[in-house]
Amino acid sequence: MTFVDAADQVRWYSDIPDRIFPRTKSVIGRSVYNCHPPKAQSKVKKILTSFHEGTSDREEFWFSLHGEHFIHLEYIAVRREDGTYLGCLEVGQDATYLRSLKDEKRR
């Protein structure tokens, strides 16, 4: 997970050993656009613009990474009760295992 503030600056990220896209401490306080490859920056800009404008609150994507992993990304706007935009939570997971589940499992 990564939290980006209303100024599109990275403020926090989960620091776990098996992150899909590694982050370093130097990213804190930097523009979120610098955390993405050039070809993805316009997509990130479009998402965050829609969050700033209030026309969207959630976007999700999924794709194959290196033909080995199925990645799910979700961008979620964080707002005050009055609708004021506070930032964005980016949540990514390797969902490869989930794709392999069959039938049902209930407790």
Rank of each mutant, 00 (worst) to 15 (best):
M1L: 12
M1P: 07
T2H: 01
F3S: 01
V4F: 05
D5I: 04
D5S: 08
A6H: 09
Q9F: 00
Q9W: 02
R11S: 00
R11F: 02
Y13F: 11
Y13L: 00
S14C: 07
D15A: 12
I16Y: 09
I16N: 10
P17M: 06
P17F: 03
D18M: 12
R19L: 08
R19C: 02
I20M: 04
P22D: 07
P22S: 06
P22M: 03
T24V: 11
T24Q: 09
S26C: 06
S26H: 06
S26Y: 03
V27Y: 05
G29Y: 00
R30Y: 05
R30K: 15
V32M: 06
N34P: 01
N34D: 08
C35F: 01
C35M: 06
C35I: 02
C35H: 00
H36C: 00
H36F: 02
P37A: 09
P38R: 06
K39W: 07
K39E: 11
A40L: 07
S42L: 10
S42A: 13
S42Y: 09
S42E: 15
K43P: 05
V44N: 01
K45P: 02
K46Q: 07
K46W: 02
L48I: 11
L48F: 10
L48R: 00
T49P: 00
T49K: 03
T49H: 05
F51G: 01
F51N: 01
H52W: 02
H52I: 03
G54C: 11
G54F: 12
S56Q: 05
R58S: 13
R58I: 13
E59A: 10
E60W: 09
W62F: 11
W62Q: 14
F63E: 01
F63G: 03
F63D: 00
F63N: 04
S64Q: 09
S64I: 13
S64W: 05
H66N: 09
H66Q: 08
E68N: 08
E68T: 13
E68K: 15
E68C: 05
H69F: 05
H69Y: 05
H69V: 08
F70P: 00
F70S: 03
F70I: 08
H72E: 06
H72S: 08
L73Q: 03
E74F: 01
I76H: 06
I76G: 02
A77F: 04
A77M: 10
V78Y: 07
V78T: 05
V78G: 01
E81I: 08
G83F: 15
G83Q: 14
T84Q: 10
T84N: 07
Y85R: 09
Y85Q: 01
Y85D: 02
L86A: 08
L86R: 06
G87F: 04
C88H: 02
C88Y: 03
L89T: 15
L89Q: 09
V91A: 11
V91F: 15
G92M: 10
G92S: 14
G92T: 14
Q93I: 13
D94T: 10
A95S: 15
T96H: 10
Y97E: 15
Y97Q: 15
L98A: 13
L98G: 13
R99A: 14
S100K: 15
L101Y: 15
K102W: 12
D103S: 14
E104N: 12
K105W: 12
K105D: 11
R106M: 12
R106H: 14
